[in-house]
Design a protein around this nucleic acid. Structure first.
Length: 302
DNA sequence: AAATCGAGCAACCGCAAGAGA
DNA sequence: CTCTCTTGCGGTTGCTCGATT
């Protein structure tokens, strides 16, 4: 019979999401967790297809997402992984907590490609670009073999070029890549410069810590929390228990708090000692909170 | 000031894989 | 084993906005 069409139903909305739609989706996911995406739009009162909802949540609304440009160290990881994995953006994203495959793909196409070309490196092969452009035109390089079939660990030209500058950091990343070929399914960069603490805590983009209402408990002290999947030890300076909020979650779209004034579901509670605004969703249990850090407003779920 | 161009990025599309009945 | 459904993935599109003319 073939697959049931997803997004071609008449009446379903397409295009950019509105703030109101975002609110509905956020509220639904935080209340119910991620379930059958096909049912989400109906249950959440959205005129979107489930696929669109999933994409919106995964690529933009998920509270554990980082925002902003990739850092230098993140770029290096992307480049090294691309050298061995090719355009497997989801695999690459799995090594960059808080980054999505879409984001990395976009960044690659808009920034890194040009950067590599400027450095004289072919962004496809990761080898130095031949001086003879004719040769390229006449005999384009054969497509790289599927990564899982590669026998040699690929050390990108970028890595080679950068090694002198970066020293041990890049070497460690390269060695991590070498090891990775043995078990691609559990790709993990051993030393992530931006996450230098306990790596066991880091999660992949496909390991989004679901926030079930009953998991949103905010203990009043150091926690033996049930939210261990989202535990982070990288925010000691926040003054909040580490397992109580996600780190550095900027929502530029919602920079102005007044946007939230008409958010029926969320009550602004107070401003804590760190000048963060706390909000509570009364439809959830009393401990379910959002945190809005000081400008630029950051968002997290306690 | 208006028009044009181009970069950046959110979102869409179609296909494939996997799960379950 | 087959069929159906859901989800994930990668390529592509098109909108927005800043820079340039």
């Amino acid at each position: 019979m073939g697959r049931q069409p997803c997004c071609d139903k008449v009446g379903l909305k397409k295009g950019p999401w509105t703030i109101e739609e975002d609110k509905k989706l956020i509220n639904f996911i935080l209340t119910n967790g991620q379930c059958c995406w096909r049912a989400v739009p109906k249950l959440a009162g959205l005129l979107r297809c489930g696929k669109s909802c999933r994409l919106r949540w995964t690529n933009y609304l998920r509270p554990d997402l980082k925002r902003g440009l990739l850092s230098e160290s993140e770029e290096k990881i992307v480049i090294d992984l691309h050298a061995s994995l090719g355009n497997r953006w989801s695999k690459i994203a799995a090594n960059l907590p808080g980054r999505t495959d879409n984001e990395i793909k976009n960044h690659w196409n808009t920034h890194i490609k040009k950067k590599l070309k400027r450095m004289g490196i072919d962004p496809i092969t990761h080898k130095p670009i031949s001086t003879s452009t004719d040769q390229e035109a006449k005999s384009p390089p054969p497509p790289p073999p599927p990564p899982q079939l590669q026998q040699e660990p690929v050390v990108s030209a970028f890595s080679e070029a950068e090694q002198n500058k970066q020293g041990n950091e890049t070497l460690l990343q390269s060695s991590a890549i070498t090891e990775r070929k043995e078990e691609e399914k559990s790709i993990k960069i051993i030393t992530s410069p931006f996450n230098s603490t306990d790596n066991s805590d880091s999660f992949c983009t496909d390991e989004v810590p679901l926030i079930e209402p009953h998991e949103n408990l905010v203990p009043s002290g150091p926690s033996s929390s049930t939210t261990s999947t989202s535990t982070s030890s990288s925010s000691a300076s926040s003054g909040m228990p580490d397992d109580m909020h996600f780190s550095s979650l900027e929502w530029p779209q919602y920079n102005n708090m007044s946007i939230w004034d008409d958010f029926n579901y969320w009550d602004l509670l107070c401003e804590d000692g760190d000048h963060r605004k706390l909000a509570v969703d009364p439809s959830l249990n009393q401990f379910s909170r959002l945190v809005f850090d000081q400008e630029p407003w950051k968002f997290g779920v306690l």
